[in-house]
Design a protein around this nucleic acid. Structure first.
Lengths: 170, 170
DNA sequence: CTTGGAAAGTCAACAAGGCTGACATAAAAA
DNA sequence: TTTTTATGTCAGCCTTGTTGACTTTCCAAG
């Protein structure tokens, strides 16, 4: 199987960036970089006895206030039972408020409380600081390439979520 | 705190790529892309009742045959108990062989068996296919930027591991 | 109006894979 | 000989995934 491109270019163009070795380096870069990506928020979360699942929920509730549980499920890609446990602790701790929907009373609309906003700011400040340093060191053209490759790496459905949440109406 | 760059450029140069909004989009891109990055191997692993922890061990043993347990701990960033559980199952299942060191007989040198190599190939073929498609769609300049930003995102110690494993002697 | 299905959310139980702590063994180093 | 190092193991805990069973609410077909 496998369409390998182990050695010389397979066409007239320079396709050296598609060799197995280059691909492996990209794979390992993703692995090591993701550790750095989560390291700073992880430290803050640990102080609050929270985990990454809490961070993800807080991030997207902050991004889309009033979002429903079901909407969040689609974005996060976990089961509702798994998300529910995280949301329950955030609600008990007073970081998230769940308002029963007015049109459809089955729905819960989620909002960060002031305390939730405070934690979100601490987490995203830390994560942005790392990202900002990386962006600054790599430069604007590298950033464009970074985002382009990541977007291509997403599943199409996730890419839609990415574009919705990233570019949609505030 | 936070050195925010919410609005206009803070210098004569175009620093728009450092705005909080651009940084948030990069953060969300990492989140969604990592899901895609692991999706294909995850499906294969599930058929074998393995998880990502097994994949990581297999990947780096394949990359550096004969590596020791201790070395692997540094690369993977987990506790020996956690790694040991994974290695034990891989050894029991005949995918990994642990040879007692000749110079230092406390050490275990890890190798993939033929069966281990077969699974590694299936996993990395799947992961490379996704990466190759993303690289090809984004183009060589984007790939350079992608790798540059990821490298800057790593913790310095992890960056060293990345360079060792990626550029070191085979 | 009633009823049945679908949708949203909750509760219970389980598994993977992190973690810490304590301890055993073997071998290298001092 | 004593100490340190590398490894493995057992026990137990936590987070965060999973499935299954259930309630509440809504809506639409009869």
């Amino acid at each position: 199987m496998a369409d390998r491109t182990t050695g010389a270019p397979t066409s007239g163009e320079s396709l050296l960036f598609l060799t197995d070795d280059q691909l492996r380096r990209g794979i390992e870069a993703m692995f090591f970089a993701y550790r750095g990506f989560t390291a700073d928020p992880d430290r803050i979360l640990a102080e609050h006895d929270y985990g990454r699942a809490h961070h993800r929920a807080i991030h997207f509730i902050n991004r889309s206030p009033g979002t429903t549980v079901n909407n969040l499920l689609g974005i996060l890609g976990v089961t509702k039972q798994s998300l529910n446990r995280v949301l329950r602790t955030l609600i008990e701790d007073g970081l998230v408020e769940a308002r029963v929907g007015t049109r459809d009373r089955r729905e819960r609309h989620l909002y960060l409380t002031d305390e939730g906003v405070t934690l979100e700011r601490a987490l995203s400040d830390a994560q942005r600081a790392r990202m900002r340093a990386a962006y600054r060191a790599a430069g604007p053209e590298a950033v464009a390439g970074f985002r382009a490759v990541l977007e291509q790496m997403m599943d199409p459905e996730l890419r839609r979520h990415y574009r919705d949440v990233s570019e949609g109406p505030g």
